[in-house]
């Protein structure tokens, strides 16, 4: 029998595993630096994994916990990215201030867009989020003088002390902080409320919940975290581009959430890391395999949708429960 008091909070075993993995993640770059160019490449890859993991987790606050399918989450990722890019490149603001501004600006964007979107449910919600994000994409794409349009914004400065290794550590620390905040959120009364609405939106109204208000707040929170992720990726790449707002970018956290497991907090991050790793692994295995990466991704997704909608975490939990 499931003891649901522990549904999202970790058991003792999970705590130990968590500490070991965290310690490993902190040590990893120090080991990798000994491997020259390859090591540096892998530090870059793992930094990207961390950032995209944060992005996926942010989406999952509305997707898995809130039951709201958004096809436009990249809008907030992109807003965060361009906030950092524009503030640093055009206004000469320092990195830390820019990184602090990213979630705020993205949260504001989410407040505006979300205000309209939460009035709709299900499919219509999904389409409206898509419409808004594509609208934003088109604007960034067309507004050449401000956003650089198709070319994006390049050459974003990086403070001296933030080499690849230190930047990795910065991202990791921020990831852990965000994870802990999100963990508190999903375990709080607010988190329970959000799950209540996911489970039965109509009934939720009849237990006195102003459903739209809570969905809106959740949407804003999710948008803010996405904005931070976007800002971090911009600084990692040292450029921002329209791709960050494109609908295909919105798909990435969905895929990650689904593969990792959208009914858990960490699942989406694990899922995105697995997908990024898989892509690189296939590249190493055979160049031709990356040519058909989308086909492979699609097939993975098909299998997950049809046979394991709980994702990797779901599979793990099933196996764990049976033993």
């Amino acid at each position: 029998m499931v003891n649901n008091r522990n549904e999202y909070s970790s058991t003792k075993r999970n705590w130990i595993a968590g500490i070991i993995v965290t310690a490993g993640l902190f040590l990893l770059p120090f080991i990798l630096t000994n491997f020259g160019k390859t090591g540096e490449y892998w530090i870059w890859v793992t930094t990207e994994m961390i950032i995209m993991g944060l992005f996926a987790m942010s989406l999952n606050l509305i997707l898995g916990f809130g039951g709201m399918v958004s096809f436009g989450h990249a809008a907030f990722f992109g807003v965060g990215a361009y906030t950092v890019a524009l503030l640093m490149k055009k206004a000469g603001v320092s990195l830390f201030f820019a990184l602090a501004a990213a979630p705020v600006v993205a949260g504001l964007a989410a407040a505006v867009i979300g205000w309209f979107c939460v009035r709709l449910i299900g499919l219509y919600f999904a389409i409206l989020t898509l419409a808004f994000s594509q609208l934003l994409y088109m604007i960034v794409f067309q507004w050449y003088t401000f956003t650089g349009g198709d070319d994006g914004i390049h050459g974003i400065p990086r403070p001296e002390f933030l080499g690849p290794l230190n930047y990795y550590l910065l991202c990791l620390v921020l990831f852990i902080i965000c994870f802990l905040i999100m963990r508190m959120l999903v375990n709080s009364s607010f988190g329970l409320t959000i799950r209540t609405i996911r489970e039965n939106l109509e009934r939720a109204k009849f237990i006195g919940l102003n459903v739209r208000r809570f969905q809106w707040l959740n949407f804003i929170i999710a948008g803010s975290f996405a904005g931070l992720a976007g800002g971090l990726l911009t600084e990692l790449n040292r450029f921002s581009q329209t791709e960050f707002l494109h609908w295909s970018k919105s798909a990435e956290p969905i895929l990650g959430s689904l593969v990792g497991g959208m009914y858990s907090l960490l699942g989406p991050a694990i899922g995105s890391a697995v997908l990024i790793f898989m892509k690189i692994f296939l590249q190493q295995l055979h160049k031709g395999l990356v040519e058909i990466w989308a086909i492979i991704l699609g097939l993975v997704l098909l299998v997950v949708v049809l046979f394991a909608p709980g994702g990797l975490v779901g599979i793990y939990e099933k196996a764990f429960k049976k033993s």
Binding site: A251, I254, W293, A294, I295, L297, L302
Partner: peptide, 25 residues
Amino acid sequence: RRVYREEHLLQLLLTYALVLILDDV
């Protein structure tokens, strides 16, 4: 046929997976 009774989310994701596959094909 397998997903008519599933939630919207899974249906959408299934057709999305097909986009990835068919476009790449």
